[in-house]
Design a protein around this nucleic acid. Structure first.
Lengths: 136, 136
DNA sequence: AATAAAAACAGTAACAATTCCTAATTTCGG
DNA sequence: CCGAAATTAGGAATTGTTACTGTTTTTATT
């Protein structure tokens, strides 16, 4: 027996926002965003729906060493690149990770979190550029 | 010019506690523990020193999808197994991860976080045992 | 459609984890 | 030893999140 949860306007609006970007927004950012189209929505509703959506697997919650949790529209197992310079969070697909984990564990791994600290594309270019300037 | 930070009694006591176990304690657990030998230490001091120690690389901060941050005496890059049943956190050394990340990134990766959700050794045995009993 | 039960809501208070603030103490450099 | 700098205790404040209460919306039943 499949239970289809009723999708409220609030729920739909929140999900739309998350699915419309690959920004990995925080709950607060999502709250600010959803208020643009639904000014009377409450913080509690945002958190409740983010939790429900995460629990049912429609979105994915990401927790990082610093700052609040973020939400990801991509629910497939994948990692994240956290930029050491600008703090941005972007998807990072590291192919063999899951199978390596399985080998190490000796059993299947259904979910993992992989957060890599490094420079994002943009900041890496910037850093290289600066380094060149210093050399001149 | 190397700057050696003064090690206060508080700092030393906190570090000792972390280094004495592989329990991945939370700040609050560390606070409770350090108060046994230093009853007047304040929460703020514990947090300030945990941050300082993490920043200088003497210990490592672990953040998980749920619950407060934890602290690890092992600063070498490695992952963690978070038990889905009992919630315990144990070290997990997945050898090739770093090199795979390097390949994917195209540049060296100096730090990563890998948290795997699965059953810990103990709970896995327990689960198997229960399953056997059900079969009887 | 009328209506009762269930679910979700807004608004806000409460909570837990962490940080910040101030005055007092401790350590350092000379 | 003395003044500057760093660290502390204690507690207030902040942040991110959850819980509560009374109201609205949806669903199920007729």
């Amino acid at each position: 027996m499949i239970y289809i949860r009723y999708l409220t306007k609030q729920n739909r609006a929140i999900l739309d926002i998350i699915e419309s970007t690959c920004d990995h927004m925080t709950a607060e950012e999502i709250y600010r965003e959803v208020r643009k189209v639904m000014p009377r929505i409450s913080v509690g509703t945002v958190y409740r729906n983010l939790n429900a959506l995460s629990d049912e697997g429609s979105i994915r919650r990401i927790s990082l060493p610093c700052g609040p949790d973020r939400y990801d529209r991509n629910v497939m197992p994948h990692g994240h690149l956290v930029c050491e310079m600008c703090g941005s969070v972007s998807d990072l697909f590291v192919e063999q990770v899951q199978s390596i984990i399985r080998e190490t564990l000796g059993t299947e791994c259904f979910s993992y979190e992989l957060n890599v600290s490094a420079l994002c594309e943009k900041c890496r270019r910037l850093a290289t550029h600066d380094a060149e300037r210093v050399l001149l």
